[in-house]
Computed example of a mutant assay.
Amino acid sequence: MSIKVLIVDDSSFFRQQIKTIINSDARLRVVGEAANGREAIEKAEKLKPDVITMDYEMPMMDGITAVREIMKQHPTPILMFSSLTLQGARVTLDALDAGAVDFLPKSYERVSGNTDSLKKVLIEKLITIAKPSTASRSGLTTSTTPPPSRPSSSAKKYPQRFELVMIGTSTGGPVALQKVLTQLPANFPTPILLIQHMPGSFTGAFAARLDSQCQINVKEAEDGDTIQPGTAYLAPGGMQMMLTAKNKLKVLEGDARLNYKPSVDLTFGSATKYYGKNVLAIVMTGMGADGREGARLLKQSNNVIWAQEGSTCVIDGMPSAIVKADLADEVVPLQDIPQRMVTVVS
């Protein structure tokens, strides 16, 4: 049984292009189209799609309002199409807050060209964020299977004095990071490095939003930053962030062979030379396995690795990869991560 998709966009041209891409894969089937947010709510209820693609700027009702209403009335995984602009970044973050699962940068050139790269990433995202029950009925493999269980004790203690916290995330990460960072006190005693898979035009707006919401300071990392306690440094999208000395950041283009920019593996691995065993690294919600090899390097120096508990992830591919590789010291539900951080780091 194929995954049912509802396309929401006020442009008939975009709807047709997206429909062509989606229907080119036998695992997916477009079951309906909507030209505005109000129509999207009605068709989501009537057609019961497994996943929805959502535009933002539409007549009668915008995409964010539609997302919020759909998630209230009949929760469905939603993929936002957003422009690569500052406004596009802000809208995307609002949509994720409203309940959208993920987003995809949208431009006329990219969609009209019907490029193989767009086709590949769109299909992959739709299949991954579709309801797990539908995926299993279709014989599809997704990264939403709960990872192998490992006991997590809130009383667990570690012998080292932590000097650095690093957090790697991807799909579902912006909302998860917000939930964690907003619970940390202003006097949090270590610097925090954040590696979130996100386009370059989005990370500045995301860092600014987090900074306005949190007691700690949050900034987009810059080349040459000296990292300070009580401050979180977000890796710029499209770039790599690494430590080149204790407390010193380097932001650079990085090797084109790396799949992710920024790469959790690269940032994690760069800390092993300067912090001994005094790093707490946390791998949270996301597709794929980025962070596993970096965590492996950290583990060789007896650093501590946590994985977010699978049922609290939007997509548990990344933390599940940590657990399956036997690298996790603890598997921690999202809601418990901030207090556990404060407890063990303090």
Rank of each mutant, 00 (worst) to 15 (best):
S2W: 04
S2M: 03
K4I: 01
I7E: 01
I7F: 07
D10M: 03
D10I: 07
F13N: 07
R15V: 05
R15N: 03
Q16W: 11
Q17G: 04
I22G: 04
I22A: 04
R29D: 06
V30K: 00
G37N: 09
R38T: 09
L47F: 12
P49V: 02
T53E: 12
D55A: 05
M58V: 05
M58D: 04
I64S: 04
M71Y: 08
M71N: 03
M71I: 10
T76E: 07
I78E: 07
I78R: 03
S83V: 11
S83D: 07
L84N: 10
T85E: 11
A89E: 06
L93T: 03
A98N: 00
A100Y: 08
P105S: 09
E109I: 09
S112I: 07
N114I: 06
S117I: 13
V121A: 00
I127R: 03
T128N: 12
K131S: 09
S136P: 02
R137Q: 15
G139M: 08
L140V: 04
T145C: 10
T145Q: 15
R150C: 15
K157V: 11
Q160H: 12
F162W: 02
G168T: 08
S170A: 14
T171G: 07
G172Y: 08
P174H: 02
V175P: 05
L181Q: 06
L181I: 11
L184K: 09
P191K: 00
Q196T: 10
H197T: 02
F202H: 02
T203E: 11
G204Y: 14
A205L: 10
A207F: 09
A208Y: 13
A208M: 13
R209C: 03
D211N: 15
I216H: 03
K219Q: 13
D223F: 04
D223M: 00
G224Y: 06
I227P: 13
T231D: 00
P236E: 00
Q240A: 05
T244F: 14
A245Q: 09
A245T: 00
A245S: 08
K248Q: 13
L249V: 08
K250N: 09
E253D: 12
E253P: 10
N259G: 15
Y260I: 06
K261Y: 10
V264K: 04
L266C: 10
T267S: 13
F268Q: 03
A271H: 02
L280G: 04
T285K: 02
L298M: 05
K299S: 13
K299E: 03
Q300T: 12
N303H: 01
G310F: 10
G310W: 11
G310R: 09
S311T: 15
T312R: 06
I315R: 05
V323L: 08
A325V: 04
D326Y: 13
D326M: 14
S346L: 10
